[in-house]
Amino acid sequence: MDLSIFGLASIYVEWLLWGFGVTLLLSAATCVAATLGGLVICAARISPLRVFSIPARIYLAIFRNTPLLVQIFFWYFAGSAIFPTPLLDWFNNPHTVTIAPAGTTWLSFKLPSFEFWAGFVSLTFYTTAFIAEEFRSGLRAVDAGQREGGLSLGLSPALVFILIIVPQATRHAFAPLLGQYMNAIKNSSLTMAIGVAELSYASRQVETETFQTFEAFGIATILYIFAVAVVEAIGELVQRRRDRKYGRGAVT
């Protein structure tokens, strides 16, 4: 298949698309893991028990106030000092996962390299901290009267939190959450520093190989804008459905 575009040979476009695939995979995995992590950290942060809230505060302060690049270097270079050797050996060797029910190979794929895992771990820890804070500000955005109303209806504080506060907070936190997903896509570019072959890395490689700077960076830029625009469009769609359901001006 001939993929050449803007005068860039087909093979290099393939490199870029492959890089884009890695970017998407890395950021999607990060978003899922960081959303779960964000829920946990947010719960710990708002907990009345100090055993939970103080470690959560420390986590948030550290991971939000240090550069992602330094965190990536830390997990990549210092990972070997922190993690046990068998685990590292496992990550450093290539693995192929084969799903073969009843003898026939159904699905077979290679597990990503150590660089990818290091990038995933650092992106997840970093994004978790930001998503946790978005959740927390979503909770704070719910009017205090809602809680009082629920309590005066005779609901227990736990039920008020689950039935009244959380559904509204989810709506408040939705747009900022998508914003963090877009940041995750953009931040995944930093993993090129440890050699993850994602889109920025690929564009740099194509540039070195062909000297077609403008084309290489141009295509990569367009792909990034495309990915971010898709997330934005999803947000817009959800927003519109919600407007139809609850009417404009309802809590969004």
Partner: peptide, 11 residues
Amino acid sequence: RSIPVLMLIFW
């Protein structure tokens, strides 16, 4: 706002 800082530094 929609391109990575890294990409803009390259540019």
